[in-house]
Computed example of a mutant assay.
Amino acid sequence: MTDDAYLFLVGDPATPLGASVAVVKDLGCLEMPAVRAWLDAHGVTAASPGVRLLPPEETGAIPDDAEKLPVPLTDEELSRLRHALMPGALVRVEDELLAYRDCAGERDALLARAAAVGVPPHRIVELTGEDAGTVASATRGQGRPSDPVPQQG
């Protein structure tokens, strides 16, 4: 396995291997002189249907005789590539997981902010569904010290 994604050519555009560069969109690597030279050498453009892209973990599927070029992708570009290769249901679930991560990553700050403006800890527990211990830990030093956090049971 390599750390680079690969651009490669397929002889038949109906081949299901890889993602079309046009589907992934806005790839910074397409501006690299080496990539432009590779495309020119093969008489294709990035929009050509036979130009495909695979993420690092799948490059072993590229046929040995295929013309290929390693290309660096940003994390965001790699995520778009992986989504382009997934069935729709998996993409939706991954999007939900990313939204959860983004929300959960701000959890402690949100809990502390709620306590700082006066939301009682027991109400934070009710509204968020978070464990009372989690709320107590995140809100320590916020709100009124006389507000106990009830234990759920």
Rank of each mutant, 00 (worst) to 15 (best):
residue 137 S to W: 08
residue 76 E to R: 04
residue 115 A to L: 15
residue 71 V to N: 05
residue 141 G to P: 11
residue 150 P to R: 09
residue 89 A to L: 01
residue 36 R to A: 09
residue 114 A to L: 12
residue 67 E to T: 06
residue 90 L to R: 09
residue 7 L to C: 06
residue 118 G to H: 06
residue 73 L to A: 07
residue 54 L to D: 00
residue 40 D to M: 01
residue 146 S to R: 12
residue 140 R to T: 15
residue 74 T to R: 07
residue 150 P to I: 15
residue 48 S to W: 10
residue 88 G to N: 09
residue 73 L to F: 07
residue 78 L to P: 10
residue 21 V to R: 00
residue 116 A to G: 12
residue 25 K to M: 12
residue 62 I to E: 01
residue 13 P to M: 13
residue 52 R to A: 03
residue 63 P to Y: 05
residue 12 D to S: 11
residue 138 A to H: 07
residue 37 A to Q: 11
residue 143 G to H: 09
residue 68 K to H: 15
residue 80 R to F: 01
residue 84 A to W: 03
residue 123 R to W: 04
residue 96 E to D: 12
residue 111 L to I: 15
residue 115 A to M: 00
residue 63 P to M: 06
residue 136 A to R: 14
residue 10 V to P: 04
residue 61 A to S: 14
residue 130 E to P: 12
residue 35 V to L: 06
residue 29 C to E: 02
residue 133 G to Y: 11
residue 42 H to G: 08
residue 37 A to N: 05
residue 108 D to L: 07
residue 71 V to Q: 02
residue 40 D to K: 05
residue 32 M to H: 12
residue 91 V to I: 13
residue 129 G to R: 05
residue 38 W to A: 09
residue 61 A to M: 09
residue 70 P to G: 05
residue 142 Q to S: 13
residue 91 V to E: 04
residue 117 V to N: 04
residue 17 L to E: 00
residue 36 R to Y: 13
residue 120 P to T: 02
residue 144 R to E: 03
residue 51 V to T: 07
residue 49 P to G: 11
residue 27 L to K: 06
residue 112 A to D: 14
residue 91 V to A: 03
residue 88 G to W: 10
residue 82 R to H: 10
residue 56 P to F: 13
residue 50 G to S: 10
residue 28 G to L: 08
residue 11 G to T: 13
